[in-house]
């Protein structure tokens, strides 16, 4: 029993430890990371225009890599603050990072819920359409899902610009500014790919449900298909949808970067890109900040599902 609990805990902590392995990667490949940091700081401040003098070897340096991972672990476990460098001064990471972090988390959570809600509604509508139209719509959505995220963001931004040019009123701010923070459009852009993914998954699960006995029984009793769909099939497949929330998170995070870059939003990925080259620790902390809350959510929900349905994660994935 203790062994089982211990194993669970180790498995639970492993992905979090993995983030440290990623954050310290520069130390694995570069011989002189301190040199890069110092030069990057000088380049940023404008004191230098080139880095001709910097001598750097590329290779695999396991010892500094492991040292760095250990240092960072100790640093974060003891809650010591990480310093980073911005505008020619050393700053403490912790109050500063929270503002971009909360902005990003608002966007991600908003997109997450928007994606779930809209995908459920759209999937139910698609499911009761006649077969032929359904096939066409499924193909259309499948094709849309293949569009690269840059393409989607750029097209949406550009269509907003076209709308402004033709009608003269701006529906939503397309670029962030401090006086006029932009929320709706980034959330909308972020949620498109997850919505398409969730629609596909939900339709897949509902199709699976189609062939089960209870649906046929209910139909035989004379209950309308739509009613069975809305009440029973939806309820049964929604639980399984949670297994795919990890993929949704992945889609959100990779699109978040694009949205923040194109719409000039001072979010967490923007912060990482600004300060990552001068302080690699920023990457570790930011990835942890984004990852851990969602990871807790996934793990919790997967335990609940395991308890309720008696299956576990590995069997489904």
């Amino acid at each position: 029993m203790y062994l089982l609990v211990l194993r669970r805990i180790v498995y639970f902590l492993m992905p979090i430890v993995g983030v440290f392995f990623i954050g310290a990667l520069p130390y694995l490949f570069f011989s002189n990371v301190q040199g890069i940091e110092a030069v990057a700081r000088l380049l940023e401040s404008g004191a230098l225009t080139n880095a001709l003098f910097l001598n750097q070897d590329l290779g695999l340096f396991f010892e500094p890599y492991l040292d760095k991972i250990w240092d960072l672990l100790i640093n974060l476990v003891t809650f010591s603050n990480v310093t980073f460098y911005e505008y020619q001064q050393e700053k403490l990471l912790f109050p500063t990072i929270l503002k971009p972090y909360f902005y990003s988390i608002k966007l991600v959570l908003g997109a997450f819920f928007l994606a779930i809600a809209s995908s459920i509604i759209l999937a139910l509508i698609i499911k009761i359409l006649p077969d032929r139209i359904q096939k066409g719509i499924r193909f259309l959505f499948f094709s849309l899902e293949s569009l690269p995220d840059i393409f989607i963001v750029v097209i949406i931004q550009y269509s907003m610009i076209l709308y402004v040019r033709n009608t003269g009123n701006l529906l939503f701010p397309i670029v962030h500014s401090d006086q006029n923070p932009s929320y709706f459009l980034p959330i909308f852009c972020l949620s498109i790919l997850p919505t398409l993914f969730l629609i596909r998954t939900l339709l897949f699960l509902l199709d699976d449900e189609d062939s089960k006995m209870y649906v046929e029984f209910a139909r035989a009793k004379g209950i309308r298909y739509a009613l069975v769909l809305y009440i029973h099939m939806l309820r049964n497949s929604l639980l399984s949808l949670f297994y795919y929330s990890k993929n949704v998170y992945w889609l959100l995070i990779s699109t978040l970067f694009m949205v923040e870059t194109i719409m000039a939003i001072p979010g967490i990925t923007d912060f990482m890109l600004d300060n990552g080259p001068t302080t690699p620790d920023v990457i570790t902390v930011s990835v942890l900040l984004m990852f851990v809350p969602f990871y807790l959510l996934f793990t919790l929900s997967s335990y609940i599902l395991e308890y309720k349905l008696g299956r576990n994660d590995e069997e489904v994935a």
């Binding site: 492993m14 979090i16 993995g18 990623i22 995070i253 890109l273 990835v287």
Partner: peptide, 25 residues
């Protein structure tokens, strides 16, 4: 352990490693 590679934004990690080589030294 390697699950974290799936969740960390690959673009940013790649940028962090490639950018110094191509632009700093």
């Amino acid at each position: 352990l390697f699950e974290s590679f799936y969740y960390a934004p690959a673009t940013i990690v790649a940028y962090l490693l490639i950018y110094p080589v191509l632009q700093i030294f």
